[in-house]
Amino acid sequence: MTHIEMLASCLLEGDPDKAWACIEKYSGSSKPDVYHNLMTPAMRHIGHLWESNEITVADEHLATATCDFILSKLSFGSEKKPSAGRAMFLCLDGEQHYLGLKMVDSLFREHGWDTRYFGPSLPLEYAVQTAEAWKPDVIGLSVSMVYHLPQLREYAEAFSRLPEKPAVLLGGRLADLYDLRPYCTGDTVILRDLPETETWIRHHVMGGQQSGTTEPIPSSPVFES
């Protein structure tokens, strides 16, 4: 059994202690590495098990809640650094797939950002209200189900009308599968996965506008050091 399958089975058992032990045994050094090369594949594997009719949606929910707990534990206690900026993260209304978003939130915090993470399903009205009051530099959106796509444009347009002009980032399972540009505004930055997100954060620190993945996918030598 690979490390990924082992973690998947701990998550499916709903055993956070075993899952935590499994992560501690993983040789990957950094949190982004654990997120991208262990936890994400484990959750994908769980999705695959559902597709092969080996588990049910109820099992998936248990695994998700367990994974959520592990993520909170992993990102807890990262030392607060001088703020690199403010970022808020949310899923479109009705979207329940939030684990990737939570990893992105944790990634930003690792890089010294002040963040607000809203988890699954945040109605647009509330998102806009918060953005107006809190004035984030970055708004991160996540979408994983095709039938939530029609709302995406509404969200992207509402955020691009904000007076502070925050950078709008879009990720989630669909960002990796389809070209989402027709569903958002021209200045929305589409990030396909965590390595791309980390590259974006690093470039942002150095300043300058970025476009995300409008060009051929860069090979991702991201978690190198």
Partner: peptide
């Protein structure tokens, strides 16, 4: 069938 379930139905 929802997009995400089509291949499952096909295979099974």
């Amino acid at each position: 069938v929802d997009e995400g379930s089509i291949s499952k139905l096909g295979r099974i």
